[in-house]
């Protein structure tokens, strides 16, 4: 039992298929407490399906999910102590920033005053204090993403799932959001599971990276180990060669100086 104490989340033999097409094939892995895990793979590899199963929006065909040693496979999404941030934010467009963050707290039997305070605190934590009374449509993409993150963190989940949260942002915003996300993680001590198709992002952010290929785990390891010992040809071509190409294309200019 002691060995499992650090295991925040354990996934055992998850399978999922749509119309006889296997999306996830008998997948097992564990996520450590406070870890930043990226799930990296091309579109259609099953990463979003996995995320939706983890939070409980989709039931798996087989397998189980354990959190802190308890089976949560059939639990309601809101009873899992998890939050999710979507790629296109899914903000409540007719509510101000503050109301967006506060809204879900109303349903948690949290006293009004405390809910308001917590929401204000979260809005401040993501750097949107001056924008608290604005409508989402008047915010930039990065700011909208911050609202979505604040809304999720306000419920104090111990695991946050992020479904390609940066893909709609421009490059400069992405870079600054990466730093902010890491800062928020250490501030709140949250475990984060981050889905992306961007190799660079996965390597920049993660403690460990899970490389997914057509519903199977190609490799799950730290960035260093993946670079040093790619598990197979897929990891080599899809991940490492792509990264190398990026480095090479810039090395001409930067290295030459």
């Amino acid at each position: 039992m002691d060995l499992q104490l650090n295991r925040k989340l354990e996934i055992r033999g998850i399978c999922k298929s749509y119309r006889n097409h296997a999306i996830l094939k008998n997948m097992s892995f564990a996520v450590e407490n406070g870890e930043f895990l990226s799930i990296l793979g091309p579109s259609g590899c099953g990463k979003t399906t996995l995320l939706r199963i983890l939070i409980g929006l989709l039931p798996p065909d087989a397998g189980s999910i354990l959190k802190d040693g308890c089976d949560i496979t059939g639990a309601k999404p809101s009873n899992r102590g998890m939050g999710i941030v979507f790629q296109n934010y899914a903000l409540f467009e007719h509510m101000t920033v503050l109301r967006n963050v506060e809204y879900a707290l109303k349903f948690q039997k949290i006293p009004k005053k405390e809910a308001r305070e917590r929401a204000e605190h979260m809005v401040e934590a993501v750097g949107l204090k001056e924008h608290a009374s604005k409508m989402p449509r008047n915010l930039s993409g990065g700011q909208q993403q911050r609202v979505a993150i604040a809304r999720t963190l306000a419920l104090k989940p111990d695991i946050v799932l992020l479904d390609e949260p940066m893909s709609a942002l421009d490059v400069a915003t992405r870079l600054s959001m990466r730093a902010e996300l890491k800062a928020l993680q250490s501030q709140f001590g949250t475990t984060m599971i981050y889905v992306t198709h961007d190799q660079e992002e996965a390597f920049a952010l993660s403690d460990r990276i899970m490389i997914l290929n057509s519903g199977e785990i190609s490799q799950l390891d730290t960035p260093e180990n993946i670079v040093r010992h790619p598990a197979n040809a897929y990891v080599q071509t899809f991940v490492l060669d792509n990264l190398q190409a990026k480095v090479d294309s810039l090395a001409r200019f930067i290295g030459g100086k």
């Binding site: 929006l57 809101s78 998890m82 296109n88 934010y89 899914a90 409540f92 809204y103 419920l155």
Partner: peptide
């Protein structure tokens, strides 16, 4: 946005409330 109901579910806000609010 197709994820609104899903966000609601993850936040513990039911479908009916998401539709209404």
């Amino acid at each position: 946005n197709p994820n609104l109901e899903a966000v609601g579910q993850s936040l513990g806000v039911g479908r009916f409330r998401i539709v209404r609010d």
